[in-house]
């Protein structure tokens, strides 16, 4: 049976910022996507377990040609604090295909806003 957690006031969850919340013995990282919706992910990197709250939320680096970097999709990419692996916050998928040895997808949690509060279900 999913449990719902009241984790923050809506105005505390902003685009580009990570809001770590303790849920039981785990940490969930909550942020707001540029489209306005709430995104809640497991606080540990699927690669080696780094605490994602120490990483950063950024955009997707695109390279239309050599030595030209364009940052797109600001606020939609999470980078791990250890190795810098990139994850698409819209889908949880890694920006680069996962190695054969392991899955590499962020665990996503259902989240919603009601009455000025943010709720996450685990």
């Amino acid at each position: 049976m999913p449990r719902e957690h009241d984790i923050a006031a809506s105005e505390e969850i902003t685009v580009g910022k990570m809001h770590p919340v303790a849920v039981g013995r785990s940490t969930i990282v909550v942020t707001r996507l540029p489209c306005g919706s709430i995104r809640a992910v497991s606080g540990r990197c699927p690669h080696m377990g780094a605490k994602l709250q120490f990483g950063c939320i950024t955009g997707m680096a695109e390279g239309p040609e050599r030595d030209r970097i364009e940052m797109t999709r600001a606020g939609e990419v999470l980078r791990c604090p250890w190795h810098g692996f990139e994850f698409d916050l819209r889908t949880g998928e890694p920006a680069v295909p996962a190695p054969e040895a392991q899955a590499m997808r962020l665990r996503l949690y259902d989240a919603e806003e009601r009455n000025g509060r943010v709720f996450v279900r685990t």
């Binding site: 390279g63 050599r66 030209r68 970097i69 692996f85 990139e86 920006a95």
Partner: peptide, 9 residues
Amino acid sequence: RQGRVEVPW
């Protein structure tokens, strides 16, 4: 995987 941001082309 860790440094693609430098060479996204």
